[in-house]
Each structure stands twice: as C-alpha cells, then as structure tokens.
Amino acid sequence: MQAPTTPPLAETPRPAASMVLLRQAPTGLEVLLLRRTAQAANMPGLYVFPGGKLDDADQTLAESLLDQPPENLREGLNEPGIDAATAAGLYVAAVREALEECGLLLAEAAGDLARLDAPQARELLRVGQSFADVLSTLQLRVPTRRLVPWSRWITPRAPTINTTRRFDTRFFVAEAPQGQTAAHDDEETTDSVWIAPRTALEQYRDRLIDLAPPQIMGLAHLARHKDVQSVLQEARSKRPPLIEPEHYHRDGTRVLCYPGDAKHSVSARALPGPTRLLHVEGRFTPEEGFEALFA
C-alpha cells in the first residue's frame, strides 16, 4: 500500500511594494496601469500598478535619504510585527520600482544642487547604479510623506490564476509628480496607460485588457472617488487593511472571497464592493454581476 503523500508547504510570501499612481484629468480621476510582458513568470500580460519585490538595499538606505525617520514609517503601516528598517524599505521599494518600470520619480530636493531629473535617474539605474547612489548623485531624497499606505494583500496559499509565486504586497497611493511623463520600460512592461478606474474595469469586462483580482478590487475602490485628494484623504483617515483572499470551488467554479464574506475566516469587511469574485470563462466577476463592483 502506497503511503499517503504530504502536501507541499505553501511558499512564504515575498515582501513587495506597489505604487498606485493617480492624476487629475479634465474628465476626472485617472490611475496608471502597466502591462507586464507576456514572458513574465508572474501575471504575464496583465495590467498592474507599478511595483515589485523588496530588495535588501531598500532596507539599508541611509536615513539622510528619507524625509522622516524609519520609526515613523513603521507606525503608519498597521503591522505590529514589522521592524522599522523593513517598513522604510517598503516605501523605498515603491518609489524605486515606479522609477524603473514607468520612469516616474517621486523625490524632493536634499541639497543646494538638487536635480529632479527623472530620465537621468532612470538611466543611472539602468546602467547599474544603486538607487541610493542615484539619489545621492542628484542630491535628492525619498518623500515618504507623499506615499499613503492603502492596503496590504497576501497571495492565497493555494496557486491562483496567472500567479506562480506568493507575495506580501503593501500598496501605497500617491499623486503622480507633475511635469514628468510615464513610459513603460519595454522590458518588464510593454504598455502604459492613464485611465479612469471604471473604464479600466469595463475594458476588462469586454476582454480588451487582463487584470488580476487585487487590481480589480483596487480599481473598484478608486472608482468611488471623484478626485485624487479624495483618495488620499480617505487613505490617511484609516489604517491600511490586511486582505488575505480565500478560495473554494462551487459546482466547478472557482470562488475568491474577501474579509466580510460568509465563507471567509475574517468576519469584518476590509474593502468596499463585493466580498467574492467568481472565475467564469476566464474573468473574475462579482456573483451579482458587473455593477456590483460599484455598489
């Protein structure tokens, strides 16, 4: 008789940071989305917010290159067990990844000869300079006060659609720097678009773009706001929620549920909108239909 096999342990989530960049257009609020290359190991071809994993160097950035002490940043994340260096590193990672992936540099002057030159900063990164060296060269520092913690998502333990790795991602909201132009890097990302949150969801519904559940729920949240300041004010008024999606199968259909759903282990709601998404014909859809994203 063959001995029963032991299921593999779930991969430990990798710390990561993502920047939800916003701007005010004549027609209303817009958010920046980047399309990941089709060759990416994780979420290939999907439209996402700029972001990536936390690097060791992000956690050792000199305090002089930050606009406030790491301990202040730790307190703002709503994570009792996190240390100050890791907390500061997540802010740094969000800013660095935005520069790498879409060419937008959130920075402020730290010296008399400061040069807020996003294209030069991106090129210095591309040729191998560390982010700390780039900031020092241009006499800049990271303006952490302009990044507002928004939410924390941990990838489910079981494999999910278009996801092969687990991440513990902290999402920050920030107004995009004025006078700079976002552009994908043609390496990790192959397209970039400023778009109204509801329009992005309509394009997903109509199979014009692909999105992952964190982006779907995030865009649905943003669609409730008229302008950038409304988003930032709401984010500043509350602690960022922890969202650990749980899933089950119902009549052959995969269902993702979120805190507050009857099937979720956490009874308190963490997000506006639906508490579950059904994966039907390649699309994640609320049980009550598309409009439930905005109810």
Rank of each mutant, 00 (worst) to 15 (best):
D67C: 13
L9W: 09
P240A: 04
V228M: 12
L278M: 08
T60L: 10
E71I: 14
R165I: 06
F49Y: 05
V20A: 09
F131L: 05
A262R: 15
A25E: 09
A118V: 09
L232M: 10
E175D: 13
A270K: 11
E288I: 05
L113Y: 11
L32G: 13
S265Y: 02
M43W: 09
E188H: 07
R254G: 06
W153L: 03
M19S: 15
L106T: 13
A114K: 05
L293F: 05
E63A: 14
L232I: 12
P7R: 15
T27W: 07
I209W: 00
E108R: 02
Y47E: 02
A176M: 11
E63G: 12
P286W: 03
P214N: 02
A196L: 09
E234A: 13
A57W: 07
L34Y: 06
A295H: 15
G218A: 14
T144P: 03
T285A: 06
R205G: 02
L65A: 10
A292L: 02
D251I: 02
L90D: 01
E123T: 15
T285M: 15
R36M: 05
I82P: 03
W194L: 09
E287R: 11
R165D: 02
Q24F: 06
L105D: 05
S151K: 14
E287H: 08
A110K: 08
A114W: 02
Q68F: 03
G273R: 03
V48A: 05
Q2A: 13
A84H: 10
G28I: 09
D55T: 10
Q2L: 13
